[in-house]
């Protein structure tokens, strides 16, 4: 790792640890190993959104050319969001791509991601299926996103109706996660979800 990247990460690390957001348990950064090239982040779902109460883990990789190139960030926790791939966790956020600026820090990146959770941009989607649902059927989208938050990010609000649908799919012999993906994709219509899984 280049000297400047290493220096930067060390100082940023202190900055995040000191910051107010950590005190409020909103964002968190941890080392994965001693190399400083890979970090583990965590953000809290923003209040008054479908992600409220969830803790979303992030994988952060620091490139050799940091801070002149952005860190590579992706969600480790599964999430239902138009700008985040429900399969890989890849994030579509301009500041992680062409709008990155060297003055940005891990702290600002994590805060931006929190802001992204609060305000999705369905017109610049990463996951076309989710984006479609967001635009066409926002209520179902929100319920699905909340259900995913509860299922994967430790969110508090359980939706028994959706859970029952998953159980009935499981009884048909499908894997739970596959069932959840299929149901979410097909707006929680069991017949279509089953077809989707079989086709």
């Amino acid at each position: 790792m280049s000297n400047i990247a290493e220096q930067r990460i060390k100082r940023e690390f202190k900055e995040v640890v000191k910051s107010d957001e950590v005190a409020l348990c909103n964002i968190k950064v941890e080392l994965v190993n001693d190399s400083l090239t890979e970090l583990r982040g965590e953000i809290a779902g923003p209040p008054d959104t479908a992600y409220e109460g969830g803790k979303f883990k992030l994988q952060i990789k620091i490139p050799e050319t940091y801070p002149f190139n952005p860190p590579e960030v992706k969600f480790v926790t599964k999430i239902w969001h138009p700008n985040i791939s429900s399969v890989t966790g890849a994030i579509c956020l301009d500041i992680l791509k062409d709008q990155w600026a060297a003055a940005m820090t891990l702290r600002t990146v994590l805060l931006s991601l929190q802001a992204l959770l609060a305000a999705a941009e369905p017109d610049d989607p990463q996951d076309a299926v989710v984006a479609h649902q967001y635009k066409e059927n926002f209520d179902i989208f929100e319920r699905t996103a909340r259900h995913w938050t509860t299922a994967y990010a430790g969110g508090p609000k359980r939706d028994t109706e959706l859970e029952e649908k998953i159980v009935s799919m499981k009884n048909m012999g499908f894997d739970e996660h596959m069932a959840r993906v299929a149901l979410s994709t097909k707006d929680w219509d069991i017949t279509r979800a089953a077809e989707y899984l079989i086709s």
């Binding site: 002149f68 190139n69 062409d98 990155w100 600026a101 003055a103």
Partner: peptide, 10 residues
């Protein structure tokens, strides 16, 4: 190495 923009306000 990065871009022809100000790192603070782009």
């Amino acid at each position: 190495d990065s871009s022809n923009r100000c790192p603070i306000d782009n």
